[in-house]
Amino acid sequence: MSRMIRAAMFSAGVAALLVFSATSAAGAEIEAEVVDSAEVGELVEIEVEVLDEAGEPVPFILVEVIADATIIGEPGKVVLDTAVTDEEGAATLEFLERAPADTTQSIEVAAHVSAEPVTLEAEIVVLPGPQLHQSDAPVHLPIFNVAWLFVVLGLVWAALLYSVWRMLNLGRAAEHPRPLAKLAPYVMVGFVIFTAAGMVLVLLNRPQSHANLEPGAAFERAPGTVVGEEHDYDGLGFDLIDRPLSELDGESLYELANCSGCHGIRGEGAVVGGDLLGEILTEHDAFIGEVRRGPRSMPGYPEAQIDDEALMRMIDYLEGDDS
């Protein structure tokens, strides 16, 4: 269904296609059709045509699409796709839109006609869309899914139950019933049912995975720490896991809402998440807005999950005001 919607949106986007062109010093010309907007997660296709000064197509040269990106906190450029032109001087570049929603992405299409490539610049408005971190398998086998695991597990437990059930009959078949012996088969049946019920519990409690879906209590994570660092014992964690995120103190919230996984142990930023302290967390309202929205591949946290007060406690913790 979502594919159809996306296809429809793509068709609509084609109507708004903008044709860019650029000419190099040597007179070579590059022409590219770039959509003016794309959803996060959408496959963006760019048709490129390269012509020389005489207007003849230039075959078999490298073209690439380059975007501005921040890599581990440093501004830089990243090559999104490369292709080689065919005999008509045409090539198709494609990439998955991964820029943050509600931003404008600057891209550059470059054709290596000479040592100095001929380039053209374009901008794509990035619209909110399905995020990229869902567990979407590239190969779908409609009948072969995890439901069969239930079937197999069920059969195994049924067979085990059948065996212990026979043990109940064993006691009934006794001509001189022994009171003590009556209990044990029920204990055996109970044991098998108990372990089976445990597994059912596991399966029912499974969390949804990855971004975009509401991370429930299942996303509990042990606070990150450094080997050798002393930490006070904080209990068994039973209360933490079942407590709503809004009730947590700043530090626990930062850990249990999984912020530290991407943004570092105290918000200093890491490979995936940016530096909260230095760059992102400057203005409190804007920061809270970002958390609610969930930029890029970060899941958004609605107010129902973490209220503003809890977020303020976390901000205080990150800014070091609560110590």
Partner: peptide, 14 residues
């Protein structure tokens, strides 16, 4: 080890 219970209550079967 006290967090073994997470396996049962919050286990991810993927």
């Amino acid at each position: 080890p006290d967090r073994l219970y997470n396996f049962y209550f919050y286990g991810n079967w993927q």
